[in-house]
């Protein structure tokens, strides 16, 4: 186990080094002044310029520069945004949780809806109900996520006016961004009607969460269904049946547990897809997450923000992927490696 852990840690560090190298080279590849791209500060005079160049060791070779770049990254000195002038670490700290929050709720929704429906379809496999669920999930899975989000906006916001279409909460509520997770921040906020704020935030969450989770629900249904069918045809289920156990007992005691075990790692793998989808949907719902933030940075040619944003997103995805792989090993050491999810 320790060897495996060590292997993962080395893999993790190497990947991050390559990513950091890439983001460092971006400072050179982007148009404009290298120093400005690195720091986000356009030097006002020679003295300031010299001081900044000194801090980033621009006069030394690329390797030394990279070393100091890494040092700055690790100490949280990520530079400043061209556009807002805010420290990038602060901006990412506010934007990233918003994306994670959205993805988490979508995941929860996918589990809460996807697993029961999948079980139902699996148990009734090859009946009319199963075929209906199966084709519905196929349709859901094939929707391009941004198109679905637009459709939701058109229907729920503009036609029926059920849900708001932008932001996380009405700006009338003053919620200081402490953790970056809106529902938690509401609990910390003073001077507001928390219940009202909570309702308002849920209202805002509704459409983006739904839009992202449709695909996840669909794939969850398909994974669960297939797993249940697989387990259902195992000899031990037949044995249980011959022992005269009731349908309920067979399902809860034998099928569900054995079916859920392989679902767990597959589900975890979905998280990265989910985050990518969340980033796309954010831009449509003006959700102040990392995806929206990156798009704005692209529009405004905010090179330092692009450099850090790319690194932050890549870091998150790499970390999650490796953690998930590790997690899969831990819960089921018998398997060498899980294949990518197939639905």
């Amino acid at each position: 186990m320790i060897r495996i852990l060590l292997r993962y840690i080395i893999l993790f560090v190497l990947t991050l080094l390559v990513l950091a190298g890439l983001s460092f080279s971006l400072a050179y590849l982007f148009p404009g002044d290298v120093l400005a791209n690195l720091t986000g500060i356009t030097a006002q005079n020679e003295m300031q310029r010299a001081a900044l160049a000194q801090q980033f060791h621009l006069d030394s070779g690329y390797i030394v520069q990279f070393y100091h770049y890494l040092k700055n990254l690790l100490t949280g000195n990520w530079g400043y945004s061209f556009i807002s002038g805010m420290p990038l670490s602060e901006e990412v700290r506010l934007a990233l949780p918003a994306t994670i929050e959205l993805a988490t709720y979508a995941m929860l929704l996918a589990i809460v809806i996807g697993i029961p429906v999948g079980c139902y379809a699996g148990l009734r496999s090859y009946t009319a109900a199963d075929y209906t669920i199966n084709s519905a999930s196929m349709i859901g899975y094939s929707f391009p996520v941004f198109w679905l989000a637009l459709l939701f906006i058109l229907m729920f916001s503009l036609e029926w006016n059920i849900a708001p279409l932008s932001g996380r909460i009405s700006l009338l509520f003053e919620v200081p961004p402490k953790t970056g997770f809106i529902l938690i921040d509401i609990l910390f906020a003073d001077n507001i009607n928390r219940l009202l704020a909570f309702r308002d935030a849920l209202h805002h969450l509704m459409l983006p969460t739904l839009a992202i989770s449709v695909i996840s629900i669909a794939s969850m249904v398909r994974i669960t269904r297939r797993s249940v069918i697989e387990v259902k045809n195992k000899p031990f289920v037949a044995a249980a049946r011959t022992r005269g156990l009731s349908q309920g007992q067979i399902f809860y005691r034998h099928i569900l547990r054995n079916a859920l075990l392989p679902i767990l790692p597959l589900m975890a793998i979905q998280i990265t897809t989910l985050i990518t989808n969340a980033m796309i949907v954010e831009t449509l719902f003006s959700w102040p997450g990392i995806g929206n933030w990156l798009i704005q940075a692209i529009y405004q040619r905010d090179y330092p923000a692009l450099r850090i944003g790319m690194l932050a997103v890549a870091f998150m995805v790499v970390t999650l992927t490796i953690l998930i792989d590790l997690f899969n090993r831990v819960i089921d050491p018998s398997r060498e490696k899980y294949e990518r999810v197939a639905v």
């Binding site: 906006i153 916001s157 006016n161 708001p164 279409l165 932008s166 932001g167 700006l171 003006s286």
Partner: peptide
Amino acid sequence: PRLIYDITPKSSLRLAKLITGE
């Protein structure tokens, strides 16, 4: 009692927000 400027550069989004009452 309060006035809030919601900075929305896209004109179509401003209209959409006006329609939904945001």
